[in-house]
Nucleic acid binder design. Structure first.
Lengths: 210, 210
DNA sequence: GTCTATAGACCGATAGAC
DNA sequence: GTCTATCGGTCTATAGAC
């Protein structure tokens, strides 16, 4: 056997343990993300999460002190994915194209069943999220970037100037929990790609004839 | 005293009792409707409903045999309201105008906090609703009527022909649970009327410049 | 006096927390 | 693996109508 593998330097020992913890934490968050997308916060049980990860429920509470914290971690993860996607976009593209790309990305995540959705009514959950710095900072950064594109797109005439930028931003965010893709998917008449194209078209072009 | 009031015909005796039952049933359904709009199905408790109506929980179960039945009754009520609204529309108006009117009606109901919203994930609830004839019949009738308008609007060129009618129908239905009005209302920058106009405009005209 | 409907205690199950 | 709270659902004693 390779001694480099069986006898790593002492410094990697703690690093290894830390990495295991990190890996398990990631696994937990991924599981929560999926369950949150599948059943929503209220119907997701902590037991399910532990079962899916394959660890004891008590171990969950070593990482996250409440069910709300679990959900918050999943939201922070998605925010991070969104930030990574935004950063991967070519900086010199047309602003309207950037906005469309973001909307498409959210719809793809949703239709793949990987978009966690929290009930907007649950106040304890909202309070928890609103005191989560990582979530708020990420959301703010995304909103700033998209806000810039929205203003640029209105300035270059591609986006309607009669809709306030905040309304545009919220309308795009709302694609993350749009029920229409799910309805269409259940209908079975369209492929996922067609569904996304249709929803994007109705969102940007409207229902009326152009 | 008026004997006509103190001594009604015998037939009104049972009618009076029945009317009281009916009135209470209506009160229950209205309360459920409000709570369903406010907190959603999962967070609404049967005790709350009983408290709001001012009757004992056991009395609730004289009228409705389960929490799912309560929710279904609220949905049937809203379906009935929608049917009444559709029937009140002038039959000779332009089809696009009819569709806009329906979307506006749904948004108004939602922004007033009177649109019950069920989690689309809860399967026991869905099964219950899907076996409710009154609900299904009402929904079908509404869909037929709106489907007719959609096809007419596409035929007269006012509605985009490149969007399948079913997608149009679902997109309009989705206004009932659109989170954008709630976000805008929380922002406090717009009146309810402005919010509805903005959401309707983005829905029918799209985000892009025309 | 009888009978119905009500109020409110009560039970079992489940889920979050430790 | 345990503890506790909560919630959906039921049971029983009682008040009031006839």
């Amino acid at each position: 056997m390779n001694t480099a593998l069986t006898e790593p330097p002492a410094s990697t020992k703690t690093s290894f343990k830390a990495q295991m913890l990190l890996a398990r934490e990631r696994a937990i968050v991924v599981a929560v993300n999926r369950l949150l997308a599948e059943k929503g916060f209220d119907l997701m049980t902590v037991d399910e999460v532990a079962l899916e990860v394959g660890i004891a429920k008590a171990s969950l509470y070593k990482h996250f002190s409440s069910k709300e914290d679990l959900a918050a971690a999943a939201m922070v993860r998605v925010i991070g994915l969104a930030q990574a996607f935004l950063a991967s976009l070519p900086a010199d593209a047309a602003p309207l194209g950037q906005l469309k790309a973001v909307a498409r990305w959210m719809l793809e995540l949703q239709i793949k069943g990987e978009m966690p959705s929290l009930p907007s009514q649950n106040s304890s959950l909202r309070a928890n999220l609103m005191s989560n710095k990582a979530y708020l900072d990420g959301l703010m950064q995304i909103s700033d970037q998209m806000g810039g594109w929205i203003e640029a797109a209105q300035a270059d005439g591609s986006l309607s100037a009669s809709v306030p930028p905040l309304v545009v931003l919220y309308t795009l965010y709302a694609r993350a929990c749009d029920p229409v893709p799910g309805f269409l998917k259940a209908g079975g008449q369209h492929s996922d790609e067609e569904i996304i194209d249709l929803v994007l078209a109705t969102c940007f072009d409207g229902l009326k004839t152009r």
